[in-house]
Design a protein around this nucleic acid. Structure first.
Lengths: 197, 197
DNA sequence: TATCTAATTAGATATTTATCGAATGAGGGA
DNA sequence: TCCCTCATTCGATAAATATCTAATTAGATA
């Protein structure tokens, strides 16, 4: 489940999320500088500047060359541009969410409300948790197939006595649709947004 | 001396320099989410998420609309793109250094090495400090005018007995040029780079 | 009105990260 | 070789910022 891509982007932002480092980048963007110069220019001690520069160098944002024992640092302009480009697209940003763990939460809700034998202990009061339980329930119906109200009720009764409420909630949460007494599942993409009221 | 432009850029990087906020941005990039949802999805408590969202909202990175007492957050894609674009150009980055205060440092060096009456207490040993003192000295010669070695020596002797060393250093640091016994100042842009050896 | 839910604000604590002084390493000269 | 300069690494302290619980605000509904 490793996503070094995300990790690198995070590193990039962290690197730039500090005033001193932005100033250092600005200075080396103008021309090469030695560590000593930079320390004087930004008003920090050399070890501190060295530390920041190492961080920037590891990310490839600055280059370093050595002349005698003076180390000259300069900007690596393409690297900055390349990394910056990544944040431009909405898709890139959306992909950042990949690490999230919604299933953990949902699993915990189900553990709380569903007994080991599969019977609902109670119907959660809070919208979000009720949604989680209903999502679990509705997935036990076949997608694409059409059910009569009686069928629905029969199945739901295996989980909880108040099948009428559950059936009504399926409609309310837009997990199912109904027409003249016939029910069917709606595509998940329309209700996983957890919107309903 | 305020530069809100830089400040905003810094804020932008700080906002994105945190794993939780990147995840939140990723989630709201996919679709609208409530605070509760987001808290569950990233595994944090609601106040924490609320805090992060406020930060993102203040920067204009996310939008917020309210339906009953549920607050829906979504990505503001253009804002992200616009801010990200700023880091693309080298000039932008170079401008980040504007806040640096080299003059403070130079003033301190001069205070250390120059007595109140304008006489040099000593010639600094370290390259950088020596540069600072020489820069101060060379600026006391007229730009464009040509000086004989005798003139140079006479003027320098008012500052320090070892005029020969100072004169030689002017050449070494490329602050002055010499041709057949005549000296003149070189443009500052060629030696403010503090490069010389 | 009393109550429920969602969100925010406030205040305290924990974690992360910057900074410094001191010690160490490395490269040239005298 | 000894010394001098520049830079880095190490270890400890200081500053910034994330996170939580508890309390508060606001909207909706019975």
């Amino acid at each position: 489940m490793e996503t070094p891509e995300h990790a690198k982007l995070l590193q990039f932002f962290k690197a730039l999320a500090h005033e001193s480092r932005l100033k250092l980048l600005g200075l080396v963007a103008q021309r090469e500088h030695s560590v000593q110069d930079l320390a004087a220019l930004v008003g920090l001690k050399e070890p501190t500047v060295s530390h920041h520069l190492t961080m920037l160098k590891n990310l490839g944002l600055v280059s370093q060359r050595q002349d005698a024992n003076t180390h000259w640092y300069a900007l690596e302009p393409e690297a900055v541009a390349n990394l910056a480009k990544r944040v431009l697209s909405r898709e890139q940003i959306a992909s950042l969410a990949a690490d999230s763990a919604p299933d953990d939460w949902q699993a915990k809700v189900l553990e709380t409300f569903v007994a080991p034998d599969g019977v609902l202990k109670s119907i959660p009061a809070s919208r979000k948790k009720r949604w989680a339980v209903l999502a679990w329930l509705v997935r036990q119906f076949e997608d694409g197939r059409r059910y009569s109200e009686a069928e629905i009720n029969a199945r739901l009764k295996e989980r909880h006595p108040d099948s009428a409420t559950l059936r009504r909630e399926f409609i309310g949460y837009k997990m199912m649709a109904r027409e003249s007494g016939v029910y069917w599942r709606l595509p998940e993409r329309d209700w996983v947004s957890e919107a309903a009221a």
